[in-house]
Design a protein around this nucleic acid. Structure first.
Lengths: 212, 212
DNA sequence: ATAACTTTTACATGATGATGTAGTGCTTTA
DNA sequence: TAAAGCACTACATCATCATGTAAAAGTTAT
């Protein structure tokens, strides 16, 4: 069973686009069903050409590749998108990944790598160079106790966790087998340490700073 | 300039551990400075053997690999850790990545792949099979409006955002140029839609489901 | 245009939360 | 051992929140 993959490419550099397509033509599994110097009308493009996968440049005149990516994913999440770009800064990588890109390759990648990446993505994998992967991972490696966990005691951490889970003072007290006043005591100290003055604030801070 | 890499391995399967080490011995750049069938005393191990990188199994008798990973990273974030395991479920991958693993490989990876991964990590990259990478990426591809944004109206979204920012009803009312009762009205509806009964709960849900 | 719905406002009330003061008991440290 | 610090408890008070009912005002649809 031969499964061919139909791809389109949006890339404003004519030389790069054409030579990449020319290379990929060599591979019988990869079928180019469209090559465009922009992503202007991306939704029309994908409805018309029905690609399995889109190779998308970021920096293009008119609509940029990340906005195009968002439109595609909103329109049909089943369409895979690999970003193909010269930018490898945190912001672009983060934006692209969060918006649903299945891969992020630099343009200086070899065409062989790009071909292999397309196939990996079609097999349910993600395509990234190791350095990009590292950047991606760093996004959710908790900088948690970056400020030293705010020095919360065990009980305070426990109370905070239960607070984040939406429990009332009364319920927290029950869970911890203490009296409500004890819970108040701990919560006051939590507020002081987190520099907040209400439960919603504390919860937001706890989650965002990954204290819990 | 030859830069040798010193690694240790924690892996309870003797055959696997020994054959992997034997293979890696072939590579003059990779120096095994310790091989252990457990991670029991991991902090002592790393202080004694000073590895650049640790290959860590997850399922081991005594201390599991993820806990060991956490200890290592807390002790010295400069030590790279590659998880080497048979588990590729969401939870383990997520835990490992969040705890600072620089790589996550399956044990059925070829030893050549493992050797290459060690070198990639030492060059500042991350080591993951494409499928693992895909799982990792999915963690922060916003499932945002997975349940249809909970159908919050514009005002409700606005109120929710301000609530998450820690504002009181009074402050929210002022910001939105409405009376406090209006804020109450919206908040009640938000609670109904989110199936919660308090501000902390709403805030937690909003942040976790990326509604804001 | 009228019914149906949404948004805004008002009023009321019981529950919960935020904060302060203070006393007891236990552990740590000088 | 005395001082200091932390955890727990108690009591008090005012503010804020959660919820309900209800009535204008504005919108949408038939």
């Amino acid at each position: 069973m031969v499964s061919n993959t139909c791809y389109i490419i949006c890339e404003d550099n004519n030389d790069y686009r054409e030579s990449l397509v020319a290379f990929l033509e060599e591979d019988p599994e990869l079928i180019c069903c469209g090559a465009f110097p922009h992503a202007q009308d991306i939704l029309n493009i994908v409805t018309t050409h029905q690609p399995d996968i889109v190779l998308m440049d970021i920096d293009m005149p008119g609509k940029n590749g990340i906005d195009a990516l968002k439109e595609i994913k909103q329109f049909n999440p089943a369409i895979e998108v690999i970003m193909l770009t010269i930018f490898e800064d945190r912001e672009n990588v983060f934006e692209a990944i969060c918006s649903g890109a299945s891969g992020y390759l630099l343009k200086n990648s070899s065409p062989e790598t790009i071909a292999a990446s397309i196939k990996e993505v079609m097999k349910g994998g993600a395509a990234m160079t190791p350095v990009i992967a590292r950047k991606a991972l760093q996004f959710f490696q908790k900088p948690s106790k970056k400020e030293g966990t705010f020095q919360l005691t065990i009980q305070e951490q426990q109370v905070l966790k239960l607070l984040v889970d939406g429990l009332s003072y009364k319920m927290i007290a029950a869970k911890m087998n203490v009296v409500m006043d004890t819970v108040r005591y701990h919560i006051k100290k939590i507020y002081d340490k987190l520099h907040v003055h209400s439960a919603p604030e504390a919860v937001a801070k706890a989650i965002r700073d990954r204290l819990i």
